[in-house]
Design a protein around this nucleic acid. Sequence first.
DNA 1: TCTTGTTGGATTGTCGACAATCTGCTTGTC
DNA 2: GACAAGCAGATTGTCGACAATCCAACAAGA
Lengths: 230, 230
Amino acid sequence: MAKLDFSPIADTTRRAEIVALLRRAILTGQLEPGQKLNELRISEQMRVSRAPLREAMRELVQEGILTSIPYAGTFVVDVAAKDIVDAYSLNKVLDDFAIELAWPQRDQRFFDELDRRHDAVKHATRALDTTRQIETALQLHGLVYEWADNSVLLETWQRLTSRLQMYFALHQRARNEPVPAEDLHETYVALLKGKDMRAAQRHAREHIDNDFEALLAYARSLEKRASKGA
Amino acid sequence: MAKLDFSPIADTTRRAEIVALLRRAILTGQLEPGQKLNELRISEQMRVSRAPLREAMRELVQEGILTSIPYAGTFVVDVAAKDIVDAYSLNKVLDDFAIELAWPQRDQRFFDELDRRHDAVKHATRALDTTRQIETALQLHGLVYEWADNSVLLETWQRLTSRLQMYFALHQRARNEPVPAEDLHETYVALLKGKDMRAAQRHAREHIDNDFEALLAYARSLEKRASKGA
DNA sequence: TCTTGTTGGATTGTCGACAATCTGCTTGTC
DNA sequence: GACAAGCAGATTGTCGACAATCCAACAAGA
């Protein structure tokens, strides 16, 4: 018999597709923070009834990218500078842990996948596709989590990723400048292939700090604007 | 004007109440792992239509204590030994981080609340109310997370707590033995009041390891039973 | 006997309509 | 003009019914 791995077939429910559509819209910044989601309008646009739409929204509320106030509406979460600080400081701790767990598990498949994802980042960078660049960069960093073989950790990371992606997307849209042509992940990938785990962890922390500084500045500007508006 | 803090008024939607009811049933072990939730039956029992029930179930799926398979049903999550190991190893890392963040924030209110929650544990222990004992013990440990002033960390802890509570409840129900009369949290509370943060962190890790050993033994027995049944 | 197709019942997914609630405006009163 | 009461429109929450899907039992054929 031929050796062939079938992957699970596509999601068949409307609900799942709606979740994917909404998530994408939020994470790419098409839906802005604080914006209200009108159920009737969205359900008509998607040619779907409100039932599966509402169920999808409940999922995204629990995922942390929507918030719901009974009888008032469901909104895209507001991004405060504090949230970004919180997410990043936790991310540092988790990255440390993930690298530690994944380290002894590294194998040829890990290295191959590392290169594949790194290539994806480089490709998106060359294509000046910022949205895709953010997505692929996060997927690159997610590899150690997938290899850590800890389902709860992976799940936690995925939740965190949603927010980070949203923050990055907003940041990029706001600055609206060309993406950095140089490749910031070269060292990260090299260290993950190397023999010094501590060095890899240290680099990850610093790498995170770099991204973080730029994002935080943006977050602060957001808050200033908000307080002026109020 | 009198200084008075009003707490938010009760949840007004059926959905929220259903979520609370189901969560409680799952976390106390009234609904067993792997058990299927029949929508029609539950909605009739609760005298509620399926719409809010389904929305509530979506929330609990995202919360990680239910799993859903399209057109097949929604089930209470199965507990595998690996899951418990994963949850506990992550919990250790998070506890470390939480204590570190909360440490400089400790104030009189913190110490008062620490004592209050400790008393609650002791009370539940004396009353031989195992369910309540688990609940209060987790709330005691949650205090450092609340004081850490990191919303993402707190949220992560709360998700983790659901599972831990479920594991503990199942463990207790399975063993069905009287709860330990002695108080295991005395040292923990004392160290959190003291001056040596490292010592507190170390103790938390060891404390976790203790609970973990007992739980893991139970989890292994669960798996044995499952493989026999299959 | 094993495999394959069919069929009926049960359950989940989706829909359209109705009820409950909120919000902003208008109206009336002082 | 200021303020409270009440009304109208819009939106969310809930309901009951229908459609799509799955599963187990059974039948038919090799």
